Amino acid sequence: MSDQISPEELSSRNSELLDEIIRMSDFSFERLPMLDIIGERLADSLALALPNMTGTLCEAELTQLDYLPMSQINDALSDPVLLAVCSSHQLYGPILLVLDSPLVLTALELMLGGTPRGATPHNTEGFTAIERGFGKRLAGLIAQELQRNMALVGDIELDLDRIETDPDAASVTQPANLCVRMQIALAQAGHSGALEVILPYDALEPLRPKLGRIHFGGPGEDASPWREQLASQIERATVELEAVLTDIRLPIQDIMGWAPGDTVNLWIEEDHEATVLCAETAMFRAALGKRNNGNTAIRITETLTPEEETSHGCNDH
């Protein structure tokens, strides 16, 4: 059975909507399309950067971007939150990063080597000095990624000034002033947190011409902010290598007749070089030898390409 709305409730809702329309009409502003692009790229870059700090995979998504007065943003803040005030000489005022309690506590536990279990951690008594310290490291990383993505519209240098927990102490503009709020959902180790980036509209004045243009895309040096992060992840990856001494073909009937103690002729000389394979692809040729501790080792003598390995051929004996 659907809920019935009384005439009084309907009138109240209509009044609230009308008040909201009147309030927003007091602001004279244009939307800044490039901020949508920057917000989406910030979410993508955080999904790549946070695992370097926390050691676990991260999912990030820009869930909303809206234009609101600072007072309404403050009223919507959960309690407690960690507030990071960032400044830039290229902007006409500071900006604000808002990290909710689950995001900070999950990141802290992961950075300390723990594995969050159970429900999403939530702090109701404020942050300790240690939690604020780890939260500052997290906010610093977010500020770096925001600076990297803001480079799409200008050369911006962001500095993390201070960490606060009181919205009044972290005020970056007057309560009635318009701000752009980016809301990004972050998930790590099965726990979800929220990040808000608060950009006072007046602070963006130096960048407003570029932020107001319509982005059609196109290649460029900064068009792929994830490239550097991806390259660093690839360099840290591990692979398995195989050192193959030789490759011979034998009749199945001979193999079926083998017994312990039999000797198999490999048809190679003592100085025969091994082939080093990665994912079944020949990478190097290597000479066999021994280290001082008696362990067998190989010394790379030649770098191979697939064409070179084919031309060398295999021993068909």
Score class of each variant (00 low, 15 high):
A194V: 10
A203Y: 02
I184C: 11
P167R: 08
H191Y: 02
A203C: 06
T165I: 11
L207Q: 08
L207R: 10
D159M: 06
G135K: 09
Q144K: 12
G190L: 09
S171K: 11
A143V: 00
A169K: 06
G193I: 06
A143T: 01
L178I: 07
G154M: 10
I163A: 10
C179N: 15
N149W: 04
G190F: 06
A170W: 05
D168G: 01
L199G: 02
N149K: 05
D155W: 02
R148A: 15
I198N: 02
Q174I: 04
M150D: 02
S192C: 04
L141T: 04
L138V: 08
A151P: 00
A139G: 08
G133F: 07
R181E: 13
M182Y: 08
Q188C: 06
D168I: 12
L138R: 08
Q147L: 02
L199S: 02
A151D: 14
A143M: 09
K136P: 03
L207H: 09
A203M: 05
G133N: 13
L158S: 03
N177I: 00
M182T: 07
N177F: 12
G135E: 05
Y201F: 14
Y201C: 01
L146I: 02
V197Q: 00
C179R: 08
V180T: 13
S192V: 14
C179L: 09
A185Q: 14
D161C: 07
E205I: 00
K136C: 10
A185S: 15
M150K: 04
D155M: 11
A169R: 12
L186S: 09
G193V: 08
Q174C: 01
L146G: 01
L186M: 14
R181M: 15
D161E: 15
Q188D: 03
S192G: 04
H191W: 02
L158W: 03
A169F: 12
D168W: 02
I156D: 03
K136D: 11
Q183E: 13
S192M: 09
V172G: 12
D202G: 03
L160P: 05
P200R: 08
E205Y: 02
I163F: 07
L138I: 09
G154V: 10
G154Y: 07
D166V: 05
V153P: 12
R208I: 10
A176Y: 12
Y201R: 00
R162T: 14
G133E: 14
L207M: 12
A203V: 01
A189I: 07
L204P: 03
E196I: 01
V172R: 13
P200W: 08
D202W: 01
E164H: 04
A189Y: 02
A170R: 11
